[in-house]
Simulated assay, not measured.
Amino acid sequence: MTSVRPHRALITRAAADLLETLQARHGALMFHQSGGCCDGSSPMCYPDGDFIVGDRDVLLAVLDVGEPGVPVWISGPQFDTWKHTQLVIDVVPGRGGGFSLEAPEGKRFLSRGRAFTAEENAALAGDPPLTGARYEAGERPQPHGTHVVAETGRVESDACPLPGRAAPVEG
């Protein structure tokens, strides 16, 4: 049985809609998953290039939202801790981080996570993610399907359910 390599990062449709609004206003964008310093552990949205990506930072995905897509970065040490987890970028009402572009919108991006299955971890083991150094040298990830999911909890493989809400049962 051949396992399909899962995405390391996804985005909900609602978050992608907000991202498209921000792209229209600010141009190309990027995310960096914050490690908890100034704004907690939030996905921070910046104009592409405004956050300096380090050589050891890891590219989780290039979200297929707008052109040329939105890269999602995480620090190398933080990735080592969370490499078994799929990052799902969602949006909720509230004030975003002071440095993130959605702050004035009355909404904030939020990270949710889902632990990869043993089969998914095995599929990912043979496909190490790109580092900032390799990206700078011109390497790019191969696209393989959409990163946009309807909502968290829509189906088991999409993302984790919202707290207090059971995931729907298929069938």
Rank of each mutant, 00 (worst) to 15 (best):
T2M: 11
S3G: 12
S3A: 13
R5D: 06
P6M: 07
P6D: 06
R8I: 00
R8Q: 03
A9L: 03
T12N: 04
T12Q: 07
D17A: 11
D17S: 08
L18N: 09
L18I: 08
L19E: 04
Q23P: 13
R25T: 13
R25H: 09
H26P: 06
H26R: 09
G27L: 05
A28D: 15
M30Q: 13
F31Y: 08
H32R: 01
Q33A: 11
S34K: 05
C37R: 14
C37H: 15
C38L: 11
S41W: 14
S42K: 13
P43Q: 08
C45W: 03
Y46N: 04
D48A: 12
G49D: 03
F51V: 01
F51S: 00
I52N: 04
I52T: 11
D55N: 10
D55V: 08
D57Q: 03
A61K: 05
A61H: 12
V62M: 06
D64Y: 11
V65L: 10
G66P: 08
P68S: 02
P68C: 07
G69D: 01
G69W: 01
P71W: 00
Q78V: 13
D80Y: 14
T81V: 12
H84Y: 09
D90V: 02
V91E: 00
V92K: 10
R95Q: 09
R95F: 07
G96A: 11
G96L: 06
G97I: 12
G98V: 14
S100A: 14
A103F: 09
A103E: 15
A103R: 13
P104F: 12
E105G: 02
G106M: 04
G106D: 06
K107A: 02
K107D: 02
L110S: 14
L110Q: 13
R114M: 09
F116K: 11
A118Y: 13
E119F: 12
N121K: 15
A122M: 10
A122H: 14
A122P: 10
A123F: 09
L124M: 03
G126Q: 06
L130Q: 02
E136P: 01
Q142D: 11
P143Y: 11
G145H: 10
V149K: 07
A150C: 07
T152P: 07
G153M: 02
R154W: 15
E156M: 13
D158Q: 06
D158N: 05
P161D: 07
L162C: 08
P163C: 11
G164H: 09
P168A: 10
P168G: 05
E170R: 03
G171P: 00
